[in-house]
């Protein structure tokens, strides 16, 4: 009996060692490109090309970063933050609204509407460029960061509704029924029960859509033109011309672009995924 217990314990320890080994290996694979990105951001153009991309930089030199920051970086940064915040909040709110009836109600056109929304996931982004460009022109939004909010929200809707609907479907019927007996109406039910319980789904979507919007290039590129209205992914082109590109500078820009996201994820991931649900279940 005791032997058997020991055996399982040893087995489980071995399993952990193996698992940790793979975990470390995966972590190395995951962050190596990031490390090289940072390393190259400290180099000089010629240094990078002669010594190679994978060599250590000669010295820890922040000249590139200083130059980037002294440029228009903060302007782009603020634009990006503003667009991201507004689009993300609108997107998550309305997607949650839409997922509620799709997951918990029975009504006539439900199947059709759901299928249509899912089909919208299959749209190739590039075919929307010309129609959306025209719309932005006629709404007089062209060349302003507000032109980006519509497409950013709309492109995130299909996937968000799809995921949230699947999350909300998993909430046990009993909870809802109990609340209904208490005389809770459909609207209140959404705000006080369904929405809090869908938080893990919402947080996944916040991460996914947030990253997409932060790195979004093609709409930002087509719908704005003046420097004051550019977002971060466009900042790269000050160092990229027809025949030449200053890769280390670009790497500095990209490092500065990704850093806020990493910091946000480090501080928020626990709250985003676990903390919120724990609260919801208790309530």
């Amino acid at each position: 009996m005791e032997n058997g217990y020991k055996m399982t314990k040893i087995k489980s320890r071995i399993a952990w060692v193996i698992a940790t080994f793979f975990a470390v290996a995966a972590a190395i694979v995951a962050i190596t490109p990031f490390i090289f990105m940072v390393m190259n951001s400290f180099k000089e153009k010629f240094e990078m090309l002669t010594k190679g991309v994978f060599a250590l930089p000669d010295k820890l030199d922040f000249t590139n970063y200083i130059e980037v920051i002294q440029g228009n970086f903060f302007g782009y940064f603020l634009n990006s933050v503003l667009v991201l915040a507004v689009s993300l909040i609108i997107l998550l709110m309305i997607s949650a609204f839409a997922s509620y009836p799709l997951s918990r109600f029975q009504f006539g056109m439900k199947g059709l509407i759901y299928s249509a929304i899912v089909a919208c996931m299959s749209i190739p982004v590039h075919i929307t460029l010309i129609p959306i460009f025209k719309m932005s022109q006629s709404m007089r939004l062209y060349d302003s960061i507000w032109a980006l909010i519509g497409p950013y929200v709309a492109m995130g809707i299909p996937i968000s509704v799809f995921i949230l609907t699947s999350f909300m479907e998993q909430i046990p019927k009993e909870i809802e029924e109990a609340a209904a007996i208490d005389g809770c109406g459909k609207v209140r039910m959404f705000f006080s029960i369904i929405l809090p319980m869908a938080k893990p789904g919402l947080s996944t979507l916040a991460i996914y859509n947030g990253v997409n919007m932060w790195n979004e290039f093609i709409f930002a590129y087509t719908l704005t033109q003046s420097q004051g209205n550019r977002t971060l992914p466009l900042a790269v082109w000050e160092f990229k011309g027809q025949y030449s590109m200053n890769t280390p500078m670009i790497m500095s820009v990209l490092t500065l672009t990704v850093l806020p996201m990493i910091i946000l994820f480090v501080f928020a991931q626990d709250k985003l995924i676990k903390g919120m649900t724990a609260g919801a279940v208790k309530g």
């Binding site: 033109q225 082109w237 000050e238 160092f239 990229k240 011309g241 027809q242 030449s244 590109m245 200053n246």
Partner: peptide
């Protein structure tokens, strides 16, 4: 509209 974003072109 042009592509003079950088260097000599600019």
């Amino acid at each position: 509209w042009n592509i003079g974003t950088e260097g000599a072109d600019k």
